[in-house]
Every structure is written in C-alpha cells, then in structure tokens.
Design a protein around this nucleic acid. Structure first.
Lengths: 220, 220
DNA sequence: GCGAAGCTGACATAAGCCTGACAATCTGTC
DNA sequence: GACAGATTGTCAGGCTTATGTCAGCTTCGC
C-alpha cells in the first residue's frame, strides 16, 4: 500500500511516515503543495493524506484537492484539519475528499480509515483490479492477460491501470495526459496515441476501443 | 437519494428525518436493529445512517453492520457515535463502515458526507437514462439497444441523448441544430435529417417518428 | 395528384488516429 | 561513470471515420 503524505509540518510528517512505514506502508512525503501537485505516481498511489492547514505561498490544500478532482483523479484522499475547523471539512468533502481526520491524529484511527478507504477503492475485493481477461495488481506492479503475465513499461502499466479503474468508460486523451504526466510541461497528444498503440500491441488490438474525438475505452 | 436511518433516539431521529426530507431526500427511519436487519429495500437505498449507540436488546449497531457486510451487502454505511468513543469508530470502520460522524451531528457536515458517499458509490452504479429498449450512459458514453451495445458516432450519440432526455416529446430541428452545433456557424437542416437517418439505421427505423413540420419524437 | 417536407445513398473532405522509425532519455549493471 | 538496453517522445506519412452536401427519390397532407 503506497501513500502520498502531503504535510508541511516537519515534526508531524516525520512521525507519520515513520509509523506508517513501520506497519509496512510505502510512504512518499512531500512538504509543499507544488510538489504534491506535480506528483507523478498518483496512479500507483493507494491513498493521499492531505493536510488542509498547509500554510504555504503556493496554494493551499483545498486548491490541490480541487485540482486533482477537476482533472479526473480518483485516488482516495483523506484530509487532516485542525480541531473545530469544520467549515474546512465540509468544504473538503464537497470538493471530493473521501474522508477526514481531526488533529491531533490518533494513529490507530488513521490506520483503520486508510484500510477502509483502500477496501472501498477496491470494492472490498482483493488487491487486484480486473476486467475481462485482464488483471492488474497495483501493489505488486504486475498485470496479466488471460492468466499470462504481461511485460509492461511504466507508462503502459499506468495507462492500463487507468483504464481498469473505469472499464467501459471513455477516458479522454486529456485525462490520460493529466494522469501520466501530472503538470509537467505540455505533452503532445501523439505521445498518448503512441502509448495506446504500444499497449494495444500487448493486450490485443481490440481491447482498447477508440472513441473518435473523445478518447478511448477499455472493452470488457 | 433514498436513505435508511437507523436511530433509536426518537428526538434525534425525528429531527434528522425532517431536515433530510427538507433537502429533498427520501428517508426511511427505523428504530430497532431488528427492523433494520430485515429491511427489504437495501438495494434501492443510496446510503445507511447507522447509530452505533443503539441500546437495544436485539443486538447493537456493530452487530448489524457486521451482519450486512458478512452477507455481502455493499450499500454505503455512515455510522454515528458518541464523542470520545473512538474505539467504536475504529471498530466500525474495520467492520466495513464507509464513514462516521461524531454526535452531536452537525447537519451540514452530515449532508456533505452523504453526498461524498453517494458520489463515490455512483462510480460503480452508473446513472443511465433509458426509454423502451434503449439505454444510454452519458458518463461512460455508452448506449445499448435491447442490451446490445450500440456503436454511435459523436453526433449520433448526442442526438440519441437529446431524444432520451425527452422521450415521447417532439424535438424540433432547430432544437437539434442548437444542441448539436452550439455556437458554431449555422448548418443546413438537411444535416439533421442525415443524422436522424443514420441514427435510425442503428436503433430501428420506427424508433424515431417524424412529425411533419415540427420535428421528431422518440417512440417509447 | 401536386407541392412541400423529409429521406437516404453516394461522395468529398478534413479531422482524427495509427504506427513504423528514429532520436533522446532514462535505468540498471558492472 | 560508462555502457547496453529499455523506455519514451517526436515525426511523418498513411489510413480510417465522421459528417456536410447534393441529388434524386419517397411520403404526406390536402
């Protein structure tokens, strides 16, 4: 279970990473909204812990949250707020947060909530997501086609992961760009086409259906 | 949005049902664990609000929660606990609750959390519009005829969407032009006729009835 | 049976997409 | 740190598809 922790408070950040690490979680810890916004591996992140009380010049936690949701990011997000700051909580939940916790954080509760989020994301199911004859395990970073292991590059894996989270749904090229590249310099849409092409070569030409002018869809 | 409220406290139950009802939700309120356990319409319930402090002879809230989850019930469940009863929260989340709220309940927060739960749940149960043997899911951008997936171009999809929003109503050519072309330069009405023709080929000639001089109507 | 309205097959065209090839970049290994 | 191999971005040319237009036909109401 890989987490992104967005926490500006050095003391709290260190303590949380340590304890989460101790129970076997992989924690990426960033201390600014900017580095969080540009975080490249959200597709491989099981959940985000986001401190709303970020006192930073480059945008606060709520902005970050809205940005992610606006760009179609579906990773579960748990927000932290100071006690009594209930307006922020409501605002946060309305902006797409999945859960919140009031500081001071009680570690057992944080753990329980993370597990709940994670189970929910997986639909109570085991750690793999599957559709049709495709299956993917984000934790193990493995994927199979009809039981046979697939050899996928990082981008291909991220792309397949993205598709598998919404099988049957149209995923736009812009969404793919956002997901694969965060906010890095602009990328050509042709790059997306190239990746789709390469992925198709591996999972079957017809597995990914083109929807002209809109994007792609994983056929189930 | 239809809710099941499991609350033994008459005062709190009444207040919550009233306020939830006032914002347009359909609330079913039960006061015992037994009637909740036997509740027949969970499949049509958008979320359950469950008071964990049920002081009843026939089982407490946690038992109920575990019972539902054990029997595969997936409805989102939000639990209520007394302040400071954090052991129950952890227990509840570990038993499959999706969220919790500490009493006293702040109504705006409850609303926000319900909406968050609902949005989340929608990811799995897509909102489709249907009429007759036609169905369409705007989110997934899919459409089916008698269960069979339809292969529609962008304009055809938009057209069918337009019809399905007002089945049985006459849609004028001007209305279609407006919808399909937004602010672009004006288009020939013949373009509309061509699109209708193409759509008819795919969903059946008789599905769309021509109303001379007025427009078209989707037959249901 | 006449005219207007609507239908539809055929076609042109352009937008959108695909993919092989290559260069740049990254990654891991010795 | 240098190298090999894998990965990824870019380009170009070719291919497919969507869609507007036209022309001739059908249908409808009177």
């Amino acid at each position: 279970m890989r987490l992104l922790l967005v926490e500006d408070d050095a003391e709290l950040g260190r303590r949380l990473s340590e304890r989460l690490g101790a129970v076997g979680m992989a924690v990426d810890w960033v201390q600014t909204a900017e580095s969080a916004r540009d975080w490249p591996d959200l597709a491989e992140t099981a959940a985000v812990i986001l401190d709303l009380d970020l006192g930073l010049p480059d945008g606060d936690g709520l902005d970050l949250l809205r940005h992610w949701r606006a760009s179609g990011e579906v990773v579960p997000i748990l927000i932290l707020t100071a006690r009594g700051n209930w307006r922020d909580k409501v605002e946060g939940l309305n902006s797409g947060a999945d859960d919140f916790l009031v500081k001071p954080v009680r570690f057992e509760e944080l753990l329980a909530r993370l597990h709940a989020l994670w189970r929910r994301g997986r639909g109570q199911a085991p750690a793999t997501i599957a559709a049709g004859n495709l299956a993917l395990d984000p934790q193990a970073r493995t994927a199979t086609l009809a039981g046979q292991p697939l050899d996928l590059s990082r981008k291909e894996f991220a792309l397949l992961h993205l598709f598998l989270r919404r099988p049957g749904h149209v995923i736009s090229q812009d969404m793919i760009l956002e997901q694969l590249y965060a906010l890095e310099a602009e990328r050509d849409r042709n790059a997306v086409e190239a990746h789709v092409s390469r992925l198709r070569r591996k999972i079957g030409r017809d597995a990914i259906r083109t929807v002209r002018g809109l994007g792609y869809r994983l056929e189930v």
